[in-house]
Design a protein around this nucleic acid. Structure first.
Length: 356
DNA sequence: AAGGCGGGGGA
DNA sequence: TCCCCAGCCTT
């Protein structure tokens, strides 16, 4: 779809004017260095601004430069990331920092290929960094831009299909203002976040309402078409909170997969057909070489995770002597749990087993 | 091309 | 409840 020059000019002028008046004050906007923009973009992947904000401030205090981040232990990076989710982002961030610090002389890549070579940087994040930090006319397409463009041009069809993505990226490329690419791209996203919202858009406040084909059709909220939802699956877990000398035992999850690299109470997924306590005892014996642990039920913890509905059966046991069951296990005081790289679910389990 | 990956916010 | 969020990576 080739846009008429006057349409492009009008959209640019209206969006940039609106953005100048209505943009939120955000820490990565006041000082858009490549490092700050990169960090913010990674944190904002599938994450709302309000959620990422406090994490960004803490992160910048702890690791003010890419070299500081590269020199940090991954475990400390994961600790600061704990609770934000999608933990591969933190692992990729740390890996990319070491690449920038050690292979690129501390200089951020300023080309599409250079940025795309960094782990955790895809087409969107590369475009955001190029346009916002380096003032280059690179397009971006995220969830906000997808919604705004789908409505502006009343796009039919699945925006996530290959054809839909090609069309969106083509439109974004035509529209991005080469004079102010960073402001234009951020204006598109800001509009999607603040005005052109998913359920009930505020079309009365929209600077491009006059041009909006979906609004002209009378049903802007019908665009883009709703995505089909994957079925919710139930998952049953058993977890043991082992105590000794007022400390509890944590193990570390493997680096890949869900909650990769985080610490947790020893536990496992239990098939519906199996006894939770039997599965737990077998796991403690095989993995931690713990025999004859007297497990007492504490109760159940429920946790919702994406399209998963988890039920955790929590047990506790006192271990008389302070044995070290294996190398990846660690005893910690309950008061220190908040300063470790553990998931929200592990916090919930701790509350259930140890009290507030 | 499809799924997996966390957790929170809003309707 | 259900959908969505400044997406990316693996299979």
């Amino acid at each position: 779809m080739k846009l008429p020059p006057e349409t492009i000019a009008s959209i640019r002028r209206r969006l940039i004017g609106w953005f100048a008046r209505h943009q939120r004050v955000l820490p990565w906007r006041s000082e858009p260095t490549a490092y700050r923009v990169w960090l913010s973009e990674v944190m904002l992947q599938q994450t709302q601004v309000a959620t990422a904000l406090p994490y960004f401030e803490r992160f910048m205090r702890a690791f003010p430069t890419v070299r500081a981040l590269a020199g940090a232990d991954l475990d400390d990076v994961l600790t600061l990331w704990a609770g934000l989710g999608y933990y591969s982002r933190a692992r990729n961030l740390h890996r990319a920092a070491t690449i920038i610090a050690h292979e690129l002389g501390g200089r951020f890549p300023d080309t599409p290929a250079g940025l795309l070579a960094l782990p955790g940087v895809g087409r969107y994040s590369a475009g955001a960094i190029l346009s916002i930090a380096f003032n280059q006319p690179a397009p971006i397409v995220d969830g906000n831009v997808t919604r705004v463009l789908s409505r502006l041009f009343a796009l039919r069809g699945d925006p996530r299909s290959p054809a839909g993505l090609r069309r969106l990226w083509s439109l974004a490329e035509q529209l991005v203002d080469p004079r102010r690419p960073g402001d234009f791209n951020q204006a598109m996203m800001e509009l999607g976040a603040m005005v052109c919202t998913p359920a009930t858009p505020s079309c009365g406040k929209c600077p491009v309402a006059k041009l909006c084909r979906a609004l002209a059709l009378g049903q802007p909220e019908r665009f883009p078409p709703a995505r089909r939802r994957s079925p919710v699956r139930a998952e049953r877990w058993a977890v043991a909170v082992l105590r000794s000398d007022a400390e509890v035992l944590l193990v570390r999850r493997e680096a890949a997969g869900r909650w990769g690299g985080l610490r947790e109470f020893p536990g496992l997924v239990v098939p519906a057909s199996q006894s939770a306590i039997a599965a737990l005892r077998a796991m403690l014996r095989e993995r931690l070489a713990l025999r004859n642990v007297r497990l007492s039920p504490v109760g159940q913890v429920r946790h919702q995770l994406s399209h998963r509905d988890m039920t955790v059966e929590v047990f506790t046991a006192a271990i008389p002597s302070r044995i070290e069951p294996s190398s990846d296990a660690r005893w910690v005081a309950p008061a220190d749990l908040s300063s470790l790289a553990i998931s929200r679910l592990t916090h919930k389990i701790a509350r259930a087993a140890l009290g507030a």
